[in-house]
Every structure is written in structure tokens, then in C-alpha cells.
Amino acid sequence: MPGTRAGSPLLARPAVRRTFACALVGRSAYGVLPLCFLFTVRQATGSFPAATLAAAVLGLATLALPVQARVLDRWGQRRVLPLVTTTWVVLLAAAVLLSAAGTSRPAVWCVLALALGVTAPALGPSMRAQWRWFAEDVAQRRAAYAVDSVGEESLYLMGPIVASVVLATGPARWGLVLVAALAATGTVGLVASPAAVARAEEPGPLLGLGPVRRPGMPRLLVSMGPFGAGTALVYTGVAAAADRLGHPGWAGVVEAGIAAGSVAGGLLWARLRRPPRVSLLLVGLAGLLALAAALPFAAAGVALALGGIAFAPTYVSAYQAADALTPPSEHTEASTLVNTASNLATAIGTALAGSLVAGGVSPYAVAAVLIVAAAATSNLGA
């Protein structure tokens, strides 16, 4: 544990500020990548279905991140992250060269997408592992996770904007060059941190179930499923409603409002001495979603923005619960599993949303039911 004054604000420490800033730079790559990769494949193949297939493979392949997290727990960030990031940068360079050469075979792009997804550096879990090293007590760790979630939410708001600028000014493959530069910068900053030396004193086995076998972890991961699917339905429902009104750009305004609500919720959560149980926030979110299903677009957008207050605190509490349920040797993998469970459910929820919209069913109403299920299965405290 670092020898700093207990209770001092984390971001008042130069090493923490520098590390977090570098981590944000690196993690911003994941906000820029999806659109730039999609349109890189689209421009190379001339086929939008081929591009969406490759993008789907990329997204699903990132579900392998818990494996990388286990290796990080075992051998430490300074050994693992540079190797993984270098591999990823090389693959991104290959994508740029293939695009420039006009490679049009969808199978080639799907294989490359699979490789990119499997080797994506786990910068978010690595930063959370460093927060655990920097934070001296439970309250500081909650504040750290809240700041981290707010930063990540902001990145996913800004990433598509940056990607849009790239797409408007040149070929999409230049966005992949930017992604590589961002990830490399973030990795350098993370491994230069004093916290990067930390790794498990007694690492668990390389094979096996890992954190999943710990009492309480299956329930935590199960509760993140309906939460992830519900939030996916919200975002897809917003896009469908805006498209139905003939103003697709309005979706971005509402999504920005939801992100702003999440940022506000994360900041408030960090300041509370005794936060309420997350299940209460989820019940409130479900009520707002049910209300949004009955409101016109603008009013529904306000309800959704208020509901966004529950987003960041849910992840903060999930990370804290994962820490509490697992030994230090499994913390990085456990927090990664939280994201993996949510991301897998998000993919399922997005696919489900298309059928709901086609059938005239409100995605918000179904999302409300899923969020209630998340509240009922949740074992999240403060």
C-alpha cells in the first residue's frame, strides 16, 4: 500500500492524476474503434452486411478479456500489458494496410476482427486494479470507482464524436491509426505507474473457474445480465423512436442526457457517506422506464436522463462487490467478469430490441421488467 496520508483525496496525488489521465487516453480508443472499424471494413469490401458481421465478431471476441485479466492478476501489468498492446497495435496496422490494399474478402476481415477482439488490452480492469492499490479504505475505493465510471461514461460519449470527425475528414482506416496511438499511450502511462508493480502474492491456478466459483459471484454476474440487457433496450429504443420521428440525430441528444445523468449519479455516489442499496436505485430506474414508455419523445428523454443516475452507481457497487467476494489474487479478473456479463447481455438486448420494435412493443417497457429482475437478483450493497 502506498505510503500516503490516509484519507487524502486520491486525485490530489500527482502519481494518481498522471496514471488516471493516461488510462483515460488509452481507454478512449474503445470509444473510437467501433465506428472506425465498421467503416474501414465497409470501405474495403463495399458491403455493409460484411462490415456489420466483422463488427459483431469484434464485439463478441472481447468476451475473452477475463482470460487476459487472469494473466494480469498472475504476472502483473508490467509484464503483460506491453506485450498485449504491441500485438494489438500490429493487428491494427495490418487492418490499415489491408484496407489500403482494397482487401475485400469478408472472411479475412472476420478473422482479423476475431484477433483484434481477443488481444484488446484490458486497460479498464488494469486501471481499477491500480485504484485498489492507491485507495486506502473502502470509502476511498468507492470514490475511486465512481470517478473511474464517470470518466469511462464520458469517453463513450466523446468517442463516437471523435470517430465522426475522422470519418468526415478522410478514410476510416486513419481512425485505426488513432486508436493504436491512444492505446499505446495509455499502456505506457499505466505500466509507468508505481501501482503497476502490484500483483497477487499468491496467484490462483491459471486454469479453472476462478472467481466464478466464489460464493456470491454467480449471483452478482446473473444480476448484471438483466441490467445490461435493459440498458441496451433503452439505447436501441431511443434510436428507434428518433428514427420513427424522422430525426435520427435526436437520439444523440437523449443519449447524451443519459450519459450526463450517469455522470451526475457517479459523482453523487462518491460523496455519500452511506449510499442506499443499489436495488432501490434500480427500482426507481424501472419506474422511470415504465413512465418513458407512455410519454412522447421529449418527455421520455427527460425521464431517461433521470434514470441514467442509476447507471454509474450500479457499476461502482458491482466492482466493490466483486472485490469483497474474491481474494486479491482474483480482483482484476472479477471486475472484468462484471463487465463481460453486462456486455454479453447488452449484445443480446440489442438483438432483442429489433424484434420488439418490429412487433410494436415498447423497448422501454421490456427494459423496465428486466431492471426489476436485476433489482430482485442483486446482492449489491453500498
Rank of each mutant, 00 (worst) to 15 (best):
L91F: 03
W109D: 05
L207W: 05
G117K: 06
A376V: 12
G46Y: 08
Q130M: 11
R5I: 06
L24F: 05
F297K: 09
A51D: 09
G301M: 03
G175V: 01
I258F: 11
V90G: 14
P211L: 13
P203Y: 05
V32I: 06
S126R: 05
A54Y: 12
G210H: 03
G216S: 04
R274E: 09
F37S: 04
D323R: 08
D137T: 01
Q320N: 12
S104E: 15
W88I: 15
G237P: 02
V372T: 00
A298D: 05
T350W: 10
A23K: 04
A144F: 05
T169M: 12
L272K: 06
G237I: 03
Q130V: 05
W131S: 12
G59F: 11
L81G: 09
P34Y: 09
A50C: 15
G159V: 15
T62M: 08
R244A: 15
A93Q: 10
A146Q: 03
L245V: 09
Y364W: 06
V283L: 01
A382G: 03
G252N: 01
L98R: 09
L209F: 15
R79E: 12
S164H: 14
W269H: 15
G31W: 00
A163N: 04
A260F: 11
A56S: 12
A12F: 13
T19F: 07
P211R: 03
P275I: 06
N379T: 00
L280P: 09
L295W: 04
G230E: 02
E330D: 05
V166L: 01
T4A: 14
G287E: 00
A299P: 03
A44P: 11
G7S: 01
G261Q: 08
R244G: 13
A312C: 13
T169Q: 09
P125K: 15
R141C: 14
L220H: 01
L207A: 14
P171S: 07
G360K: 01
S378G: 02
L53A: 07
S362L: 00
G76C: 01
A183G: 05
V372Q: 02
R271G: 06
V41N: 14
A196H: 14
L288P: 10
L98I: 11
T4G: 13
F227G: 02
A139G: 04
A180D: 10
G284A: 07
V90S: 10
L291G: 13
G252Q: 02
A101L: 12
V254N: 06
L72D: 15
P2A: 07
A195M: 11
A241G: 08
S8T: 14
E202C: 10
R5K: 13
T85M: 10
G208C: 12
W88T: 14
W174K: 07
N339W: 13
G208H: 07
L81V: 01
T87D: 13
I161L: 03
A351S: 04
L178N: 03
W131Y: 14
L91S: 01
G246V: 08
W75D: 13
S378H: 00
S28L: 14
T336N: 09
A192Y: 05
G59L: 04
A29F: 08
S28T: 09
G208F: 02
E330H: 02
T332H: 08
T119L: 11
S317K: 03
R27G: 07
A312V: 15
